[in-house]
Design a protein around this nucleic acid. Structure first.
Lengths: 292, 292
DNA sequence: TATAATTGATAAATAAAATTTATAAGTGAG
DNA sequence: CTCACTTATAAATTTTATTTATCAATTATA
């Protein structure tokens, strides 16, 4: 049996039409008919209901069951191809969320350079959520990630690089004393990251939990702009210490009785990804270089 | 490319010998050589290192990476075949751990009979651990399961049928008063299930937690024997209420300040298993029939 | 309602791919 | 050095996949 038969079957299930499927692959229509027949022989069961000659083709239960497995098989083969392609090119595609990267990269830069890894790493800069999706789809080999929840996914492994905390931050120009109450905090004007970021989601969970409604006057996806606005005392903000710890002109605002989740900085990769020496070395460099 | 090439490659990786691999599949030796060449073409990368002509064949990094994906592909195809086979035979292979089955089956027997499901269910009686392994390997469609921890596995889904508790049990002939202290309990002689059972594992965790060493005088895998021995006051035991609640002549022994985990009775099945009407109906029968 | 257009199935022919046979050439043990 | 064993290759053969041509069933539409 040919591996193509699975591809044909998957497309046929989608298009529900033999001729269109044939056209899609640039083959003749009987090819699809015979291919399906091969599959039905191979699995010993009818996969498609031919009620009427034209129109409205339907998968049998067995066909639907097979489709689920076929989807996985095709996905796995696709992952194999993209993994091998990058292995061949000696490229490691690494996902880099901006805030975390700015924080970590100075610590590991020399090490990466010494090992000649700088050319071998193909960088993809995006948000943590997007990077995680790219990683699962096989378009990344490994990714840095900032998250409050450790991945629970049998397909993924991770290494905790650092555990940070979320902070409320304000300009150094301000004076809040040792700490303030939540009610005082709510009198302030907030400048926040936009809705997609982890920071914002944690902020939302925290406002929900304490049932408060802060005054958000500005949102941005550019966290440097955010920090500069806070420095200039245009408002206060909420962000992981990852972003703010290296900055001058910013202070942490301590709020009484405020509980926030930890912010994990991880390296994430697929379980199935082969740990070549280069791959392992990169993981080592990040985890060693970022120890306290 | 032929699906067989993956099989050949998997076996070649295992046997590390072209001729033996050929013999294993009953084909000629060049078949394996050409098959490998096809794979190397398909994926555009060398998979096997031919250091010397005879002996000691080694996979390249790319070969190792491919092998991981190939293992999944072959497993998935195997799952497809066994799923479809049972769909065709209209058989649902269901795993039944004895204790749970004895407890539940009377409640659902009539319903199963009315729907003519009794013949369609192929029963596999074994311990919860073994059944879970069989389920993952595709040799079962669905299984009843007794466990203290809910499965965390993306490949599996489950439905909680009932939540039971673990009890210390003794013969009705004995009189313990309202409740007793742990120290008094330890003076007793224990008759327990053998090491493989959930009950025994929970018992072990509980003795570890409270750092005590009970006097176990007899072990058995036959829980009816165990209950009969307890009835006859040959010793006391530890088991989920599932086993003992229907029995006469047995009492629960309440121990002060003793915390035990819940005992979940689940129906577990693979995420990829198609939920045919029969399949869904069986799940419904079990969950409806076992409501309090 | 007749007719044209479209659909999927089938047979036979053809093309493509997998496999075998036969053989060569490299390697290691004795 | 020779023998036994390995993998690679070329050519022949077998098997499998695909195409072409065509038919019968079904829809669309005029």
């Amino acid at each position: 049996m040919n591996a193509k038969d699975w591809q044909y079957f998957q497309k046929l299930s989608e298009l529900k039409n033999f001729s269109d499927t044939a056209r899609h692959f640039g083959v003749s229509q009987p090819t699809i008919t015979y291919s399906l027949k091969r599959l039905e022989d191979e699995y010993g069961v009818q996969l498609v209901e031919r009620k009427s000659y034209a129109n409205s083709l339907r998968l049998t239960y067995a066909g639907n069951q097979l489709l689920k497995h076929v989807n996985r098989i095709i996905r796995e083969d696709y992952l194999a191809k993209s993994d091998l392609k990058r292995l061949k090119d000696k490229k490691i595609r690494i996902g880099l969320p901006p805030i975390i990267t700015n924080y970590l990269l100075p610590n590991v830069f020399d090490q990466l350079k010494e090992n000649n890894f700088l050319d071998e790493m193909e960088q993809v800069v995006d948000g943590s959520k997007e990077l995680l999706a790219e990683l699962k789809n096989g378009r990344l080999d490994i990714s840095l990630l900032g998250t409050t929840r450790l991945p629970e996914d049998a397909e993924l492994e991770y290494k905790i690089i650092k555990v940070h905390h979320f902070n409320l931050i304000a300009s150094k120009k301000r004076n809040f004393g040792d700490s303030i109450d939540l009610s005082d905090l709510l009198k302030e004007e907030f400048i926040l990251t936009d809705n997609n970021s982890v920071h914002r989601q944690v902020f939302k969970r925290f406002t929900d939990k304490y049932n408060v409604l802060p005054n958000v006057i500005f949102e941005t996806s550019d966290y440097n702009l955010l920090l500069n606005l806070v420095k200039a005392d245009k408002g206060i903000s909420f962000i992981a210490e990852t972003a703010s710890s290296l900055e001058e002109g910013i202070q942490e605002v301590k709020v009484n009785n405020l509980e926030l989740p930890p912010f994990y900085i991880l390296l994430v990769y697929r379980t199935n990804t082969l740990k070549t020496p280069i791959f392992s070395k990169i993981i080592d460099i990040f985890s060693d270089g970022c120890k306290d």
